[in-house]
């Protein structure tokens, strides 16, 4: 059981957040010019870059008449964690991450619009401080928006964990590295909040079914909060973009 240490007696978490608060999210769309769409997203100290290429014609082996093939590649920078470590591309962990990303993003993209084509999404984690998957999904969503790929809804991901304040269960939203390392269960949810659909659900350890509901609902709440933040960022970016273009045309 993750100890009550995760919550102080005043109900604050180790970093000073309350249980239902997200970390600070800062994001920017269109950070690169080369890819068709790109985004940079910070969730606390987790910092992620996403780039989107496509849709473009799919290679023959991958091509599907059903719809677009989403191709994800997740990698972590050597300097992303405290201990510097050479991280080969395509190791088991990042392969798994790539697959999970693909699952969440395929759910969001209107794949049926582009048969026989492919979209490549590259994710680079610059700094990892817990919740890298969530930040990756959120960044990729922004990059897809930036690339102009039609989406059903924003795909947002958020994690939640379990803690107790006294006898009261108090699920923690948006789990950071310190809280992850404390050994608690982490539930990661990728969802399309505006439709209420869940695209991916992952549990790091066993969680007792009694608490599953409250942890899930907290994570879903987090997804909804993130959607608002992403939406605002997109709108700001678009507003910014127009004015920039205006300047260019003048």
């Amino acid at each position: 059981m993750p100890g009550p240490d995760l919550l102080s007696s005043q109900g604050l978490r180790l970093d000073g957040r309350r249980p239902n608060e997200l970390r600070r999210i800062r994001c920017k769309l269109g950070v690169f010019t080369q890819p068709d769409g790109s985004a940079y997203l910070e969730q606390g100290n987790t910092k992620v870059l996403a780039a989107v290429y496509g849709p473009h014609q799919a290679s023959k082996s991958k091509s599907s008449v059903e719809g677009v093939v989403v191709n994800c590649q997740y990698s972590m920078a050597t300097f992303s964690t405290g201990e510097r470590k050479n991280r080969p591309r395509g190791d088991r962990k990042s392969q798994e991450m790539s697959l999970h990303l693909r699952q969440a993003l395929t759910a969001a993209i209107k794949t049926e619009l582009y048969p026989r084509s492919q979209i490549d999404i590259y994710i680079e984690v610059l700094q990892a401080d817990g919740g890298a998957y969530c930040a990756s999904v959120n960044a990729a969503t922004l990059a897809l928006v930036d690339a102009g790929v039609p989406l059903r809804a924003y795909a947002c991901a958020c994690s939640a964990s379990m803690a107790w304040r006294g006898a009261e269960p108090a699920p923690l939203l948006d789990v950071g590295h310190v809280e992850e390392a404390a050994g608690g269960v982490v539930l990661t949810v990728a969802s399309l909040p505006s439709t209420g659909n869940i695209a991916l659900l992952e549990l790091s350890h066993r969680l007792h079914s009694d608490y599953f509901e409250i942890v899930l609902s907290r994570a879903m709440q987090g997804c909804r909060d993130i959607e608002i933040i992403l939406d605002r960022a997109v709108r700001e970016h678009l507003a910014e973009g127009w004015t920039k273009q205006d300047i260019v045309t003048i």
Partner: peptide, 11 residues
């Protein structure tokens, strides 16, 4: 030596 970066929220 390990550099640890932690968030610290001020309320």
């Amino acid at each position: 030596v390990l550099k640890i970066v932690r968030e610290h929220y001020l309320r």
